[in-house]
Simulated assay, not measured.
Amino acid sequence: MKRTMTLFIALAIALSMITTAFAGNLTVATDTNFPPFEFKDPKTGEHTGFDVEIWAAIAKEIGVQYDLQPMAFKGIVPGLQSAQLDAGIAGMSITDKRKEVIDFSDGYYDSGLLLLVKSDDETIKDIKTLDGKVVATKQGTTSVEFLKENANPKEVKLFPNDNAMFMELLTGGVDAVMFDKPVVESFVSKRGKDEVKIVGDLYAGQPYGIGFPKGSELVAKVNAALKTLKANGTYGTLYKKWFGVDPR
């Protein structure tokens, strides 16, 4: 009886430790550089952005603490798949392929892909005119597969972050960049102003979702929190702060 009671107490303690760790020490991945969604503030050295702040609001709403883990985008899905991460919020498009290996929250931002060229380029009008051209995009993103399936460029150059691919365009190392709408638009209005232009349509419109390991209990809680944040105006306030317009 004493041995059984000892085992029971040990099991109870172990379960308590697991529950406490889950409730109070989530590891949440985000991209290292994907403005305005996530990036390091040069003044404070802290990561900030729409994703970072919307997750902070979600965590507060559902009552969890977490450690933010900036990392290369290409490592986030594998990290969720292996359950080394509890969640990932990094401007991640909800795709059927990704849904095979991880779970997603409801969409929290509607995006798509845009094609960017130098302002004096008259040869590229859309993805149909990428034949023989060199196109840059970011490793591990949906734009890689989209280019392979819908265009015929001479080469697709892959970069670890968007700063590198944009610089490659400005210096003439590539003919075009294809990447997510908010990032491209932000670059056009700031660093690339008067030097680059968007051509073609908005391609592959997809919502961004928060990723989780398969079967995670956090999905339902996060979806409920998102609905609350939209209803009480928190979501709209953060959206306007980072994108300059009200959510549609």
Results as ranks from 00 to 15, higher is better:
K197Q: 04
D246A: 15
A224M: 09
E46V: 11
D110N: 15
Y203P: 09
K138M: 14
D51N: 15
K60F: 08
T44D: 14
A59E: 11
V77G: 11
D103K: 12
E217S: 15
P213N: 10
T30Q: 12
A14D: 07
D180Y: 09
K128T: 15
I76C: 08
K181V: 07
P35R: 00
L114T: 01
A21G: 15
D106P: 14
T95L: 11
P70H: 02
T123K: 13
K40A: 13
V188A: 02
A224D: 13
Y235I: 06
I18R: 11
P70G: 02
V28G: 04
P160H: 06
D31N: 14
R3A: 07
G49L: 03
I102G: 11
S216Y: 06
S16P: 13
G173Y: 08
Q206T: 14
I54D: 00
F166K: 03
V135M: 06
F37K: 03
F39K: 05
N33T: 10
P78Q: 05
G79E: 12
K148E: 14
A225I: 09
I198A: 00
M165V: 04
I127Q: 03
Y208K: 01
K128Q: 12
D194T: 11
K241S: 11
Y108G: 10
P213V: 05
I76H: 04
F159K: 02
E168S: 07
D246R: 04
L226E: 00
N152I: 07
S189R: 05
N163T: 04
G209K: 11
Q65A: 15
K125W: 09
A29Y: 00
